[in-house]
Amino acid sequence: MELIVASSIGVLTSVGIYLVLRFRTFPVIVGMSLLTYAVNVFLFASGRLAMNHPPILRDGLVFYADPLPQALVLTAIVISFGMTAVVVVFALGSYLGLGNDKVNDDDVEIDQGRKREEAGR
């Protein structure tokens, strides 16, 4: 099971990074959401994995899943919504104000990329 969680974190992170490096606001926002999943799961996993031992106290039970990372991640999930919403309103504002949804101020990098592509052909 550990391998499943670790590899999921890895996959979420790498897709998240890839999307954050795109040139438009929407994929960047989606990428950040993916990074948020990855970070939250990582933090949660720092309490180590446990199955069928929720941290709800019951008589006679001694072993429980680590409650502390769970509490921290719970607020992190809610806050991540707030963060996403703020970033989205930035994105909307810049799109509506500027007429495009590019994340880069100038097109230097895009042009360079195109030029390279053309040169490649």
Binding site: A6, S7, G10, S14, I110, Q112, G113, R114, G120
Partner: peptide, 27 residues
């Protein structure tokens, strides 16, 4: 679609490295 193949390849390498690093760390 506005990134060239090279740029995308670079990003993929970076993303894969990041994913391997976090995944490996978690593992």
């Amino acid at each position: 679609k506005e990134t060239g193949g090279l740029k995308r390849a670079k990003d993929i390498v970076l993303a894969a490295a990041g994913g391997l690093a976090t995944g490996g760390l978690a593992w």
